[in-house]
Simulated assay, not measured.
Amino acid sequence: MLADNLVIGGMTAFSTVDYPQHLATTLFLQGCPWRCHYCHNPHLIPLKPVDGAPTWQRVCSHLKRRKGLLDAVVFSGGEPTIQKALLPALQQTRDMGFRNGLHTGAPSLKSLRPLLPWLDWVGLDIKALPSGYQPVTTCSRSGEDSWAAIDELKRSGVSFECRMTWHSALHSFEQVLEISEQLANRGVRRFSVQVARTAQMLNPTLGESYISTPDIEELRNSLAAKSEGFDVRA
């Protein structure tokens, strides 16, 4: 499978927020097996080409011109691991001298494992407690591999952080605390909670996610007590 077959939905040429402490180009890949209610990129869910989207050849031309300026390439989505062309793309960007970052919910360990030798950093999206994924993703058994990916990442030695999106209609304050507790018990050192952006969601009937400032501050303090790498990004 050639990297030329990568189905790209969009590109951010320069990003300071998608790979911690590195300047990156971020690619948003088409396709996702889940239908998370609060998804703010629903246009990326179908695994099909989009008119006007960048091709892999165009991406490579951009990267070659930016050698020495960019540190990394981040593959985001959608869910990038469902595309078989991701592996050769990672190999090609590594050969070009870039670090590789990945944003993933890890729906399949079988798809994630071959990518690990070619990754330098992973942002692992945790949706809920292991048994509570279906109300978020609308897909049954969707949490098993996601949580198992934590141990895979630890064994691989790839740097990673866990992140979650907090929507008050889907997660109680206590559930978010329990997620952080379980992650800390599994040896996760970096975890960030982001309040859901509700302006553009796959399921607009979910409504606004009202989380009070005192609750955010209480959560921030509780997370900081577990680890200095745990935080809230409101």
Rank of each mutant, 00 (worst) to 15 (best):
C32L: 13
W34T: 13
R189E: 03
V195G: 01
S222Q: 15
E178T: 15
M1Y: 06
R220H: 15
R35G: 15
P20R: 14
L115E: 07
V136H: 03
T26G: 03
S15Y: 06
C139Y: 10
I45R: 01
S108T: 06
L219R: 01
D151T: 14
A53T: 03
Q21D: 14
S140T: 09
N185R: 14
F173P: 05
L116E: 05
S15D: 07
V17A: 01
L90T: 03
Q91H: 00
G132T: 09
R186M: 11
W118T: 08
T12V: 15
P204T: 15
H22T: 14
N5D: 12
P54K: 08
V176S: 10
L29K: 10
G143D: 00
Y210C: 01
W34P: 07
A149M: 12
A85P: 01
G52M: 02
P130C: 01
L44C: 05
M96T: 07
V232E: 05
L129E: 14
H171F: 05
S172N: 12
A13T: 05
G10S: 14
Q175A: 14
F191Q: 09
G105K: 15
L109C: 11
S212T: 04
L44V: 08
G9D: 05
A85R: 02
V59M: 00
V232A: 01
R155Y: 01
S212V: 00
G97V: 04
S142I: 02
E217K: 00
P204Y: 12
A24Y: 12
S172T: 14
Q175W: 11
L90D: 07
D151R: 14
Q83W: 02
T16H: 00
V158W: 08
G157N: 06
I150Q: 13
Q182M: 09
W34I: 12
A225G: 12
S192R: 13
L86N: 01
N203H: 13
G101D: 08
A184V: 04
R113Q: 14
K110L: 13
D145Y: 12
G207L: 08
T198C: 10
L27F: 01
G68D: 04
I126T: 04
V195Y: 03
D4K: 09
W118N: 13
A224I: 09
T81L: 12
R155F: 08
L87M: 08
E161W: 14
G187P: 04
Q92E: 06
I211A: 00
T55N: 00
G78L: 05
A234R: 02
I126H: 06
